[in-house]
């Protein structure tokens, strides 16, 4: 992958949700696929996540949320990114997201939403195809 550039992905738990099995498994799978992954740990605010992404020079943020607060919290995150003119960081979301909300998140600029049972290979491939690596 070295000649294709580097993927730096922040995997983040947003809000008060404590379910991090999926976040950690996805982080591990991306790492095993050769990407650099920063896992934030639990209970991150949208502000924290933006800060971490900037500090880590990330080109993607993967948000994990199973608490049903995605519409509010992801919206806040996307607004913050826009406000700070950060347009080179792609955001994807995984968790319990009802079909009806997928469109809402995509309209906010989220590039992909992954529900329960998504194969790890599919997520890895999606990141490779949709995120611009750092050269």
């Amino acid at each position: 992958m070295s000649n294709e550039g580097i993927y730096r992905v922040v995997i983040a738990k947003i809000g008060l949700d404590g379910h991090d099995r999926g976040a950690k498994v996805v982080a591990r799978a991306l790492r095993d696929a050769g990407m650099e992954v920063i896992y934030t740990g639990l209970h991150q605010t949208p502000e924290n996540i933006v800060e971490i992404a900037l500090q880590e020079d990330a080109n993607a943020i993967g948000i994990s949320i199973l608490s049903g607060a995605h519409n509010f919290l992801v919206k806040k995150l996307m607004k913050l990114l826009k406000k700070r003119n950060i347009d080179d960081v792609k955001v994807f979301v995984g968790g319990i997201i009802p079909d009806a909300d997928i469109g809402v998140l995509e309209e906010l600029g989220v590039i992909g939403v992954f529900g329960p049972g998504t194969p790890l290979d599919e997520i890895v491939l999606f990141v490779k195809e949709n995120v611009e690596p750092v050269i």
Binding site: G15, L16, D17, T45, S67, G68, A69, N71, F72, L73, K76
Partner: peptide, 18 residues
């Protein structure tokens, strides 16, 4: 709900959306 489980009132900023 999560704010209750974390010892926050519903009007706490951190409870927003949850």
């Amino acid at each position: 709900d999560l704010p209750t489980q974390m010892g926050y009132d519903s009007d706490d900023e951190i409870a927003q959306g949850e």
